[in-house]
Write a protein that binds this DNA or RNA. Sequence first.
DNA 1: CAGATATCGAGACAAGGTATCAAAACAGGC
DNA 2: GCCTGTTTTGATACCTTGTCTCGATATCTG
Lengths: 146, 146
Amino acid sequence: MDSQNGNGRSDLLLAIEDQGHRSTHARRLVAEAIEASAESFTAEEICEQLPSVGRATVYRTLKLFLSADALCKVALPDGAPRYAVDTGGRHHHHSICTNCGAVNEFRASTVERVLRALDREVDGEITGHRMEIFVRCDKCLSGAVQ
Amino acid sequence: MDSQNGNGRSDLLLAIEDQGHRSTHARRLVAEAIEASAESFTAEEICEQLPSVGRATVYRTLKLFLSADALCKVALPDGAPRYAVDTGGRHHHHSICTNCGAVNEFRASTVERVLRALDREVDGEITGHRMEIFVRCDKCLSGAVQ
DNA sequence: CAGATATCGAGACAAGGTATCAAAACAGGC
DNA sequence: GCCTGTTTTGATACCTTGTCTCGATATCTG
C-alpha cells in the first residue's frame, strides 16, 4: 500500500529515473496525484487535480510511467481507458471492478499455460495477447460501495 | 468465404433485419464495402470508400452490425480499433495479425475452462472478460504479405 | 398513395491523445 | 553561483474515433 520507499521518493519516479528520465516538479506532482487516488483513475482526473500542470505533460508523464512498467492501462467493457499503479514485476493480467474501478493484478500460471496451448489452435505465430477480467469486487459485493 | 446467401442479400443485412431494422440503401452499401474488404478494416476506410454515405451513418451501421453479432470489433496492441466480419455464433475470441490485420475466430474451450478456474484466484465475482491474441499469420510468415 | 416512423447527411461536439514550438527548468563543469 | 547544452514544459492546434442534433428523406403499412 505504501508507494514511498525509504528515500521519500515514489516508486513511480524511481522507475522512470532508472530509464534515464529526470524527476521534475511536474512529474513529482503527477506521481503524488496517482498515489493519492484510491482505485484506478483517468488521465483527465489527474489533469483536473493538477491545474498547474499542462494536459500534454500529464499524458506524457503517464506514458513514461507506462513504459517503465510502473503503471498499467486497462479498458472498461465499453472501452473507456483507466490507469492504475502496477506493482508486480513479472508478466501478469488485471481484473477490473466495473462498479468501483478497482484494478487488481493476478499472475495466473494457468493463463500462460493456455496461451501456450493455443499456439496449436491459432493460425500463425502468437506474438502477444491482451486479457482483462471484469469483476464486481468483494467490496462492492458486500455493499461497501454502491 | 461467401457472405451472400441464396437470397442475394448479405448476412450482415439479414442479421439486422432479424433485429427489426430496415435494409436501406446506405446500409446495403456499407455491407457491400465490408464484404469487399479482404481482412479487417477501420470505420474510416469505409467512409472513404463510400463518400456518398454520411460518416455518422457508417458508424451507426457498424454499431448495428455489432449489436447483431454479425461484426466484431477488436483492437491492435496500440489500441487502434478494427472491425471484421464475425461468422461464428457461439462465444469466441479473436486472433489478429499485427502485420496484415487478418482476424480469425477461435473458440478455445480451454480458455473457458481457465476463466472458470480463475474465479478462485480473482477477488470478487467475474462478470466478463476481454481476450485477444496477437499473431503473425501464416500468410505473413510465408512472405506472401510484407 | 398517405401517414407514421425510421433513417439519413451535415456538421457540431466529445473523449482521449499526440505534435509543435518557444520558453523555462535542469545537470554538470567551472 | 554562473554558463551552456539538453530536457522538459505549457499552450495550443490537431488527430482519431465516435456520438448527438436536427431538418430533410426514405421506407413500410394500411
